[in-house]
Design a protein around this nucleic acid. Sequence first.
DNA 1: GGCTCTAGCGGACTACAGTCCGTCTTATGA
DNA 2: TCATAAGACGGACTGTAGTCCGCTAGAGCC
Lengths: 208, 208
Amino acid sequence: MSDSNGPQSVSQRELPVVGTPRPERADARRNRLRVLEAADRLFTEYGVKNVSLDAIAAEAGVGKGTVFRRFGDRAGLAVALLDEREQELQAKILTGPPPLGPGAPAVDRVVAFLTAYLDLLDRHVELFMDSENASDGARYRIGSYNLWHRHLAHLVEQARPTLDADHTAHVLLAPLAADLHQSLRNRGFALDRLKTGTEAIARALLTT
Amino acid sequence: MSDSNGPQSVSQRELPVVGTPRPERADARRNRLRVLEAADRLFTEYGVKNVSLDAIAAEAGVGKGTVFRRFGDRAGLAVALLDEREQELQAKILTGPPPLGPGAPAVDRVVAFLTAYLDLLDRHVELFMDSENASDGARYRIGSYNLWHRHLAHLVEQARPTLDADHTAHVLLAPLAADLHQSLRNRGFALDRLKTGTEAIARALLTT
DNA sequence: GGCTCTAGCGGACTACAGTCCGTCTTATGA
DNA sequence: TCATAAGACGGACTGTAGTCCGCTAGAGCC
């Protein structure tokens, strides 16, 4: 379990907040790590949706209130656990080699992103489900969603300026919803088919 | 409250089921109508998400168990309430005048459907939210989703046979998810902007 | 080291979704 | 009209998310 999920990661879920970032107290930090570790362990062993927050609190040896104050709700905990994996992808997009990183044509970068995201999503569907559906509209409030959105909007603007880039970016992200992905996989769509199909759609849409 | 939501409408939520369709018992019918009426009344008065199923049962003067046996869960009740409105759209698609009904070019029919659906969605977002998100993957199990999907897949096949029509139809439906729609509206997207943007995307994607 | 005050702690509490099963109602057919 | 069984009824029960608030412990200051 990485230690990178500080309070700033949690606040990432909300719209930008100002204020003095007080240092994290020692007991708070200890408990935060315990909870994340416990959640990781129980999720792996029993499956995400079979683990209650009471169970996680018990396993971590903390009170239930502690879990909620720290992570807000079930979605928040899932987000914290996904943070690390998503940050890898974020880094590759911002500073990695093309086509994921800068330097390739916009369309290729869109395709590379969508494909990479599908891989990530497929590996952690259950966690994504929790982070997106545990509360209404959770997906769109998460910091990383907004990051992906800005990235795509920027590329759409370059590739096809006649489209409404802001809106189109949301539309491109919509098929990456965890519940749709899980449903498609259950209907027998192989991951490769989804990737190929997604690439074809993105190219048809953005190639002029 | 229409009386068209018989047991067959409820079974529409599940994959096709065979078996003898026994006639609905009189008390069952009476209670079903009472529950739908009560739900409609309370939802209108207090807002969908502020009404518990206990409250609906109480208002309808039936036991809680009755509500659940009849509708399965919260999503099922929402689906039953939406049924009527969706059936109108279904009828227009199957037998109405073009471009919604048969007779227009495939691309125009896709655009007409997406636009009409956005209107419907916008009018009943709260109910759609419930019907899609009350349980995991509920949206994709609903009978009407599969109907919309088949409709679009058919049109995609005609408009752009090189695409994976089955997959593409799901992708076209993804941006119509209730939670995304609500989030976009909250971010200040006007309904007209969403319609215009959606049309542009559909045409860019499907026009060869 | 001791004081103070703020942030954090934790578990009892509430509210709600969904289940279960003993009881009662309706449809049928003799 | 009555007997019977299929199926509906309903409310007590369970499990979980999320809240609340009196209590505790850490951090900075003297």
